[in-house]
Design a protein around this nucleic acid. Sequence first.
RNA 1: GGGCGCAUGGCGCAGUUGGUUAGCGCACUUCCUUGACAUGGAAGGGGUCAUAGGUUCGAGUCCUAUUGCGCCCACCA
Length: 887
Amino acid sequence: MNDIPKAYNPKLTEDKWYKYWEDKGLFEASIDAKKRPYTIVIPPPNITGILHMGHALNNAIQDILIRYKRMQGYEALWLPGTDHAGIATQNVVEKELAKENKKRQDLGREEFLKRVWKWREEYGNTIIKQLKKLGCSCDWSRTRFTMDEGLSDAVLEVFIRLYEKGLVYKGDYIINWCPRCQTALSDEEAQHRDVEGMLYYIKYPVKNPKSEIRNPKKEEYVIVATTRPETMLGDVAVAFSPKDKRYKHLKGKKLILPILNRELDAVFDRLVDPKFGTGALKVTPAHDPIDFQLGLTHGLTPVNVMNPDATMNKEASVDYEGMDRFECRDALLEDLKERGLLVKTEPHRHAVAHCYRCHTMVEPRLSKQWFVRMKPLAKKGIEAVKKKRVKFYPARWTKVYLNWMENIKDWCISRQIWWGHRIPVYYCNKCEDGIVVSKKKPDKCQKCGSADMVQDPDVLDTWFSSWLWPFSTLGWPGETEDLKYFYPTDTLVTAQEIIFFWVARMIMAGLEFAGEIPFSGVYIHGTVRDATGTKMSKSLGNIIDPLDIINEFGADALRFSIISITAVGQDVFLSKEKFEMGRNFANKIWNASRLVLMNLDRDKVRVDLCKFYDKSKLELKERWIVSRFYQTLENVGAALDSYKINEAVKLIYEFFWHEFCDWYLELAKSTFSKEDTQVILYKVLEKSLRMLHPFMPFVTEEIWQRLPHEGDSIMVATWPHIQKDLIDKKAESDMELIIGVITSIRNIRSTWRIEPKRFIAAYLKSAKKESRETLAENEDYIKRLARIEELKIVTKEKRPEASVIGVFDDVEIYVPLQGVIDYEKERSKLAKRLEELENRSRDLSGRLKNKKFLQNAPKEVIQKFKSTQEELKDQIGKLKSNLKSLS
RNA sequence: GGGCGCAUGGCGCAGUUGGUUAGCGCACUUCCUUGACAUGGAAGGGGUCAUAGGUUCGAGUCCUAUUGCGCCCACCA
């Protein structure tokens, strides 16, 4: 076995095994009536994206779950795919066009879309390839894309159903408008960020009804405060709180809009907060949601002063027409200042909406858009979660979800872009009110019979296709076998940022259209941040590229490390060094296996462990490691079943490294030739690899293939069955004693600087017969690992002359030292220990005397405390006599 | 304005329903190039669990308040 390199090299294994699994079709799920399905649907990454750490974490979790379930015998389907990301993709392709000095309008809609499809063919699969690098065991034969024929059909079907139910409507409302992308956005797509802005105080003259002649000295003013002075060009009123006494007298009066000299109504409304600014609100119904509301209530006609690209239009007056909104702000402020109408400016911090795709400041804008009425849909979604048919992990997100759902607002779904599902609505060019909603273009208008029908130019929000993902990917609206077998799916794994965008909407869509919840569990993991706690993003340049990590440390290391530092729902802070842990562990697994492979007699080990296992025949170390394995297996299973993946990872790490490698392998070295050791070594390693496989698929496959095995791949081997009767508590406590004694001797060797190579003598004294037996039966372990040549196990003998003392539980350890012993050092060591024990003992006896404690505490606890107290007293006695013997 | 999360050894983090002596990784100290592994082994040092109260026989864990950091939501003109 000299062909096994000393260090594990992921580069030699990862691609090889991925291809092997793929070629054998192991990722593919089929409908198997004998098996129970377990389904995870991937949160579809956006085709313009590249794999970042958030994806790596997200997909590592999903892959662990799906591999675990697959090994447990479920028909495990992990359904992958991508999302067409309307705005983002269109932006990317438009940027490409810009290099050729072209705009999308130059190509025309059809040509442009061809171009996008071409782009998608070329680059849209990058992220899929990267997921393969991570080791994701998705069923790629079922890969879906939101613009696929089937999924597109589902989108149209849903739009039509909603329209027919009256849940989709078109109307003029204030929406979030991105001037750069030139499209409407939903509320969720407009992300609020705090901005250091200014609050400008501007004088609006009150119109004097008696005299048309203005006398600047006697003129009365109302001062309004605004953060966006440029919108004043669209003002149609000034509003006050009805309770505000300062402005009572203005009822029925008019004000004059400075510069444009337009007449403004004075209106009174409860929406106005008298405490903000001066209590006077300028009303711009076309550019602000509250103002729009005020406009409706008070019958004001909105004046839109901006073009789609947020430059001022001609309504804004010739002086400002064509200026950008911010340019206009400056110009306007200058003009106001000149006329002495700008009273003051003060700094004002406030949240401003930004486009989630390009981060441009969103402009609230009045326009005609399509909306989905959400309240009726939300009702079912709320109920499903309240009845726990859908559960969140961690549970606290339930509240966040419910709060959003209970205050849900209508969803603006139309986008003024070209890349996406075009709205299936056709208008008659002849008669005004001929509207047909249909998957296909109608032949003629149903009202007037004209064949001149045009389709709505807008497309649907990308999330309008994503919300159908769990069932549209399985063939809905068709009643497919897949849908019947795999739907509803089991677990959705996603990040917190996407609960509103996606999770909530999927629940609503699943219930409304597929008639069933889309998944029963929602696992929300943390956000990946860099070492300073800022969210990783391309624009900040603080990205740690998962592919770099895979390249340097391996995919297994990446998966293992990122999982082990992710507690449920807690954010993850990353730095490159953190991946060393996973790499080191992979290497440890590799070398432990290397040791086994170098010493394995392959013919001897093919037996059934349960049949082979004979408690009376096996040595302690074998009984112990088998017991520890099954105990770990049980705990790992429990952790995984409750989504505590980091806990599972830690259990495995601890077991494999610190028990199997540090102790068992060291002990097994002396008995490699024995059949018992051969079998147990092989069995525990092979089963451990299976337990490790979901977490570290590549290194486990590489080793497993080199071990005697049955079947094609560890990936489809069964998850080890827990053998409860092989969990041997006596063996575990016996081994603890041995380990404790060895450690204690090593400690003595270390403090007294006994050369590591030298064999020494040691005396082990215990009053307990049981302990003496355990020590005697396993004295070889102690001799080997503590380098003892002469070991005496005694009952009552006094401390040998010129020896130092160690204690573990009921066992006293004496190591005779040649040369001069520093008794002062030894005394102070023991005295320190004695003090510690006495403190603890005092504490314990206090509790044990407490009546309430004896009444209330569980019996096991009292028993534990009592036995501890006895042991403590015993140890204290020994320490005292030892101290005495030193003087 | 509302809601949520986090404060545990130098750093990054675990800590299940309250129950002996609070764990892990990195870093640190000393020793070890013995044929699985220096991406390693052995032995150590290091923590008033943010602060102040409270509940309890018993609090890192539950309650209240305070401080600091972070996140989310909201019609902060």
